[in-house]
């Protein structure tokens, strides 16, 4: 029992340092995380429009599936009739019938 607990404690200890100083600071100073931490910002209007800011690149693009590489892992969008409405180096606009959004680590 005690050993198991220890393991859990260890795990917790191992996880705690993962919260970086940057994240702590941004939380403390209430700074927007997408700028400070360089993570993507996703804006979704209904299930038709999705705007991803701060992405790294497209991994896969098809009519029913899009995978996008970002700093917080790969975003997988599934749906029907997916279309990239706009793409620039900073943001990406997906248009179509979106059914799911997944973060793959």
């Amino acid at each position: 029992m005690s050993r198991k607990k220890k393991i859990i404690k260890k795990n917790k200890k191992a996880q705690v340092p993962k919260v970086s100083l940057k994240e702590k600071m941004s939380e403390l100073l209430e700074l927007p995380k997408d700028i400070v931490l360089n993570v993507p910002k996703l804006t979704m209007v209904g299930n038709a429009d999705l705007l991803i800011e701060n992405f790294k690149g497209i991994i896969e693009y098809d009519n029913d599936k899009i995978r996008i590489n970002t700093n917080s892992g790969i975003i997988k969008i599934t749906g029907a009739g997916l279309r990239i409405k706009e793409i620039t180096s900073e943001d990406l606009m997906v248009n179509g019938d979106i059914s799911s959004l997944e973060f793959l680590k």
């Binding site: 690149g57 497209i58 693009y61 279309r83 990239i84 409405k85 706009e86 793409i87 620039t88 180096s89």
Partner: peptide, 14 residues
């Protein structure tokens, strides 16, 4: 598409 975006070529309606 990725190279295009990196070279600041604006693409739309893909």
């Amino acid at each position: 598409v990725n190279i295009c975006t990196r070279r600041q070529i604006f693409l739309w309606d893909i």
